[in-house]
Write a protein that binds this DNA or RNA. Sequence first.
DNA 1: GTTTCATGTAACTTCAAATGATACGTGACT
DNA 2: AGTCACGTATCATTTGAAGTTACATGAAAC
Lengths: 154, 154
Amino acid sequence: MKRDSRLSGVLHILLHMARQPGPQTSEILARAMETNPVVVRRLMAGLREQGLVRSEKGHGGGWVIARDLERITLRDIYEALGQPEILALGNRTEAPGCLVEQAVNAALGSAFDEAEALLLRRFGEVTLAQLSADVVAMMPDATEAMTLENAHEA
Amino acid sequence: MKRDSRLSGVLHILLHMARQPGPQTSEILARAMETNPVVVRRLMAGLREQGLVRSEKGHGGGWVIARDLERITLRDIYEALGQPEILALGNRTEAPGCLVEQAVNAALGSAFDEAEALLLRRFGEVTLAQLSADVVAMMPDATEAMTLENAHEA
DNA sequence: GTTTCATGTAACTTCAAATGATACGTGACT
DNA sequence: AGTCACGTATCATTTGAAGTTACATGAAAC
């Protein structure tokens, strides 16, 4: 099964936006992601509804982050994406009549729930500001002037 | 995408087998699972290779559990299934050149790894014997004589 | 006001992997 | 020999993400 990379993708977009002043177009962001502008808009639509970003049409339009980076957690973003399925594993039947299957569901279900809860807790602890600082920390001095245009040329 | 229910399914099969003496055919087990005998054989193939179950052809043939229930953990079974993907979420690119994406991968990746490790640890702590005891504990006295044939009629 | 730019969205295609089903071969028991 | 049951290849179905095309809407530039 192909893994859902929407969270990964949208974080990539947001961190690039955070490093650039002014609005960024879907076109530019899509090039950075090596994908399609429509994919970018689709990803960002949920974030806009939650007030995390704003978009403007026409000349000089594009996307801007609408909240302090310190006040946006990965969990906020995850939820704005519509809370995609976290686990690839699941129970066969949700409400089985068979007692055996009920016992299986109970055992697996609690393990699944714990793993999901752990991940969501982690997401809630990480802000965009931290991630953005991580990027700077990873940069050799020479690349601190890295721009959106050359970031993906290597 | 649809969640992978192989672990759930194979546990259901094994617990039914544990409650019945003698070999069970794929045909019988498939009826209990409301699926196809071929699906059962496919699920069980990995378990056989790991020595968790044995199969015999011909008259009187079928599947039997080949190890003490106390000595089979959910993790053993998970691994016998070929260690299916646990998380539905993942990184967009595995080895990105872009520093921004590297930072995203590092942050998400460690959270993903922790969640997977938690689930695998849980799996390692649960044995088939415990699950089988859970089933009995869930049964009203009247149903303790439940058989494979009537377990799914309700 | 018309052109240009950029988003908003619907509709379609592609892709991957589990699941389901059919068919046929192999080996074992009667 | 015949029947039973597993072993396995092959194909169809299903589901949702991802990619693409097309066109409408609205804003700025001219």
